[in-house]
Each structure stands twice: as C-alpha cells, then as structure tokens.
Computed example of a mutant assay.
Amino acid sequence: MAVLPIRITGDPVLHTVASPVEEITDEVRSLVADMVETMIAAPGVGLAAPQVGVGSRIFVYRWQDDDDVLHEGVAINPELWLAPTPLGEPDEDEESEGCLSIPGERFPLRRSPAAILRATNLDGERYEVEAEGWLARIFQHEYDHLDGVLYADRLDHPHGKAAAKIVRKRGWGVPGQEWMPGLDDLEG
C-alpha cells in the first residue's frame, strides 16, 4: 500500500466523467488499498479515484458517526438515489464541507438529507446502503467526483465566487497540480 498524491482542482481528470470498472482485478484491489491509505493520511472521510488521477468509477469512504459507529467501504460503479434537497440557504455550521482537491477550504452547500447507495464491493458483490445526514453527504460528494463535479461547482453566490477567488489566488485551476498527504501542508 502507498499514499498517493491528490490532484488539485483544474486537473482534467477531476473535471471528466469517470469510466466504469469492467473487471475487479488485482490492480483495482491495489488501487483501492492505496486510496484508503491516502484518505486516512490526508485525512478525509472519502476519496474518489479521479482525485488520485485515475478516471475510474470508484470511491472509498470511512466515517465514524456520533454513536461511534464506523461506516466504511468501497463503491465500485455506484448508483446513487437521493431524497429531494430542501429549499433554502445552507446552514454554515451544519452544512459546510471541504474537499481534498480544494485543500484547506470549507463552504456551505445544501445537499439531500438522505441517499441510497447501490454499488459493487471488491468481491464483486452488489450491495445497498441507506444513508442519512453526514453519510448521505459523503456519498453525494464522492459520487459527484465520478461525474467530474467538485463541490465548489455547486456553490451558490457568494460562496461560489469566494471559492473561485481562492482557486485563482493559490494558482490552482490549471492541470498538473497535486499535493501529498503527510508531506505537504495545504491547510490554508
């Protein structure tokens, strides 16, 4: 296993729809192990294959809820079903999220409060997870990565404008930029 560099917004792989995984090979298993190690080192609660430069429909997640229940897994070729997203402005304390591909930043984003994830695991078995709250948010965030969408792309004004300004100020938004968890300090 290895910690992989994480691509920063502007890299084409982050803004392109990922391809389905045709077969679960040893290469896919190795990639997933590296993604889990990278996610933990970052630290993050989810990581999609495009974030480490691989245009495949895979994401991993690992999050412990307030009841100390650990939710973790790998989603290969996922499908995501969402409850309607509530209207109104997002709560800046409860609905802010960040992204390892826009490191060190957080902005409020309204998301669906519930989701159903259907995916394949590393054993080639289909499974389903019903999620609410933060876990549903994680699934939506990572699934967006597989469609070439970063959370900053979904931000409303004025947060979208602020995010775009930060990207420009840091010189991001162009191909070829990445950071290495454990080595680079990009927290602000």
Rank of each mutant, 00 (worst) to 15 (best):
M1P: 15
V3P: 07
I8E: 02
T9I: 15
T9H: 13
T9V: 15
G10S: 03
G10M: 01
D11H: 13
P12Y: 04
P12I: 05
P12D: 07
V13N: 03
L14A: 02
H15K: 12
H15F: 09
H15G: 12
T16V: 10
T16D: 04
V17D: 10
A18C: 05
A18D: 00
A18S: 12
P20L: 06
P20G: 09
E23F: 11
I24P: 01
I24L: 06
E27M: 08
R29H: 11
S30H: 12
L31Y: 12
A33F: 07
M35Q: 11
M35C: 13
V36K: 14
E37H: 07
E37A: 15
T38E: 04
T38Y: 06
T38D: 04
I40R: 15
A41H: 07
P43F: 14
G44Y: 01
L47I: 11
A49S: 10
P50G: 15
P50W: 08
Q51V: 13
G53F: 06
V54D: 11
G55Q: 14
G55H: 08
G55I: 07
S56E: 15
S56L: 15
R57W: 01
I58K: 09
V60A: 08
Y61P: 06
Y61D: 08
R62M: 11
W63G: 01
D68C: 13
H71N: 08
A75C: 10
A75T: 07
I76D: 10
I76K: 11
P78M: 15
E79D: 11
E79K: 15
E79G: 11
L80W: 02
W81E: 14
T85A: 02
T85Q: 02
T85F: 00
P86L: 12
D91F: 00
D91N: 05
D91G: 04
D93L: 09
E94K: 12
E94R: 10
G98K: 08
G98M: 10
C99W: 05
C99H: 10
L100K: 07
S101E: 07
S101I: 11
P103D: 09
G104E: 04
R106V: 03
P108Q: 05
P108L: 05
P108K: 05
L109T: 01
R111S: 03
R111C: 01
S112F: 00
A114C: 06
A115I: 00
I116F: 03
N121P: 06
R126I: 12
R126V: 15
Y127P: 05
E128M: 09
V129F: 06
E130V: 13
A131Q: 03
E132I: 14
E132C: 07
A136Y: 00
A136F: 00
R137K: 09
I138D: 00
Q140W: 00
Q140V: 00
H141K: 04
E142F: 02
Y143E: 03
L146A: 11
D147C: 10
G148K: 06
G148E: 07
V149M: 01
Y151T: 02
R154H: 02
R154A: 01
L155Q: 04
G160K: 00
K161H: 12
K161M: 12
K161F: 06
A163V: 01
R168N: 08
G171R: 04
G171K: 09
W172L: 12
W172P: 04
V174W: 02
G176C: 04
G176V: 09
Q177I: 15
Q177M: 13
Q177R: 14
W179K: 14
P181T: 14
G182V: 08
G182A: 08
L183S: 14
L183G: 09
D185C: 08
D185Q: 13
G188M: 07
